[in-house]
């Protein structure tokens, strides 16, 4: 076992984990944050995307102990004071959610994109979510949702 401390969704955790755990295992099995999904387990699908120190990463490719000292945001951390994050609201309104499995990762990729670049072009939006596979829809609804979210985030 190895002791690590990390901040997840603004809360500090000091925990002891198995050396073989990946970040996704720590989030889901140790902290109970099951919003983060495991799809392929090899960095192809992006379902396990979380924001680590401001950047999106595949949590299935980060070892748990490597997250020591990091600041992580998962899908559970987006809702503030009972209010959905503008990206979440926009995804619902645009009908960009079907089965929902890719959505936690997709929403976090969209949020990270807009945090860095509040006015992305269509090309930049597509690029920003290119690491997240959705097998239900095309990606056009996500594009529409992101454009809505851009407007909402400016209004805040």
């Amino acid at each position: 076992m190895v002791d690590i401390s990390l901040t997840v969704n603004d809360r500090l955790y000091e925990i002891s984990i198995d050396e073989n755990m990946r970040l996704i295992d720590v989030l889901r099995d140790e902290l109970g944050l099951i919003g983060t999904k495991e799809g392929c387990g090899e960095g192809e699908c992006g379902a396990c995307t979380v924001i680590m120190d401001g950047e999106i990463v595949n949590s299935c490719l980060v070892m748990g102990f490597q997250a020591n000292g990091s600041n992580i945001v998962t899908i559970e951390g987006l809702k503030k004071d009972g209010k959905l994050h503008p990206v979440q609201r926009a995804y619902i309104e645009a009908g960009a959610v079907q089965c929902g499995f890719c959505i936690p990762g997709m929403v976090l990729a969209t949020k990270a994109l807009l945090d860095k670049n509040p006015n992305p072009s269509d090309e930049e939006i597509r690029e920003g979510i290119s690491g997240n596979l959705c097998r239900c829809t095309g990606y056009n609804k996500m594009l529409v949702a992101t454009k809505k979210a851009m407007v909402y985030m400016k209004g805040e």
Binding site: G43, G46, T49, E55, I56, V57, N58, L61, V62, A109, E127, G128, S130, G131, N132
Partner: peptide, 9 residues
Amino acid sequence: VGSPQIRNK
């Protein structure tokens, strides 16, 4: 290379 997630790491 890969995707934004892969390039970040």
